Amino acid sequence: MDVFMKGLSKAKEGVVAAAEKTKQGVAEAAGKTKEGVLYVGSKTKEGVVHGVATVAEKTKEQVTNVGGAVVTGVTAVAQKTVEGAGSIAAATGFVKKDQLGKNEEGAPQEGILEDMPVDPDNEAYEMPSEEGYQDYEPEA
């Protein structure tokens, strides 16, 4: 019985440690998101679009440190934060509304985080759909 109880105690310690790591990862992701939003706020009209992409990228980098179902929630929060940063930029006159959601080359930025393969159960990952990809044929 002692062996059984000791095993359960060790398992509990492992769960607590994993929860603490997840909590730490979420806190880091939130900190990076805040950094990115402050970065966007300090940019001029020309830099705002690039700044919004930076927020998304920093958040995406930190999301990889967070495991399990938390990833889905962090990704949703990050996307809403990026959308909010863009709205703030438009409201303050840093950028025109028609410039939001495009990178410096004018290509749409939507789907940055949505296409990231995420499995809350950590069982399997699927690649994003290939609808947006084109076949590449090298020139002879």
Rank of each mutant, 00 (worst) to 15 (best):
T44W: 14
P108S: 12
Y136D: 02
M116E: 10
T81D: 03
E126I: 04
E110C: 12
K43C: 15
N65G: 09
G7A: 05
L100K: 01
E139A: 05
G36R: 15
A78H: 07
G132I: 12
K21V: 06
K32R: 07
G93H: 04
N122H: 12
E46G: 04
E28D: 11
A89K: 08
L113T: 05
A89W: 15
T81Y: 03
G25N: 12
E105C: 10
M5W: 02
E137F: 04
A124H: 13
V3Q: 05
L38G: 08
A19P: 00
E57Q: 14
E137L: 09
P128V: 03
E131K: 04
G36S: 10
Q79H: 02
N103F: 12
V66G: 02
G31Y: 09
E61N: 03
A107S: 04
D115A: 13
G67M: 01
Y39G: 01
A19L: 15
P117T: 12
M116L: 01
A89S: 09
T72W: 04
A17D: 04
V118I: 10
P138H: 07
V66R: 01
A90N: 10
S9T: 03
V55N: 01
L8N: 00
V3P: 00
E57A: 08
N103H: 14
E137N: 10
T59A: 15
V77P: 03
A78Q: 01
E131Y: 12
T59I: 09
A89L: 13
K32A: 06
A56G: 02
E137S: 07
D135K: 11
L8A: 02
Y136M: 13
A69M: 14
A90L: 15
Q99L: 02
K102R: 01
N122C: 08
P138R: 09
G67R: 01
V49R: 13
E114A: 14
V55G: 02
A27D: 03
T44G: 08
K34N: 03
D119P: 07
M127V: 13
E83M: 14
A29P: 00
G106H: 12
V26Q: 00
I88N: 00
Q109N: 06
I88H: 05
D2F: 15
T92H: 05
K80E: 04
V37L: 06
V49Y: 08
A89F: 07
Q62T: 10
T92N: 04
A85W: 02
E131A: 01
E104V: 03
S9Q: 08
G14W: 05
A140C: 14
K6I: 11
E131L: 05
E61H: 08
E137A: 15
P117D: 07
A85V: 14
V15D: 00
A30Y: 13
D135Q: 15
T59L: 04
Q24C: 11
K12I: 08
T44P: 01
P120C: 05
P138A: 07
E13D: 01
A30M: 08
A89C: 10
E139T: 03
D2R: 05
T72C: 04
V74A: 12
G31F: 10
K96N: 08
A76F: 03
G132Q: 12
K10Q: 07
A124G: 14
Q134P: 11
D121R: 07
A107P: 09
L38M: 15
V49S: 06
N103V: 08
K6T: 03
Y125F: 11
H50N: 13
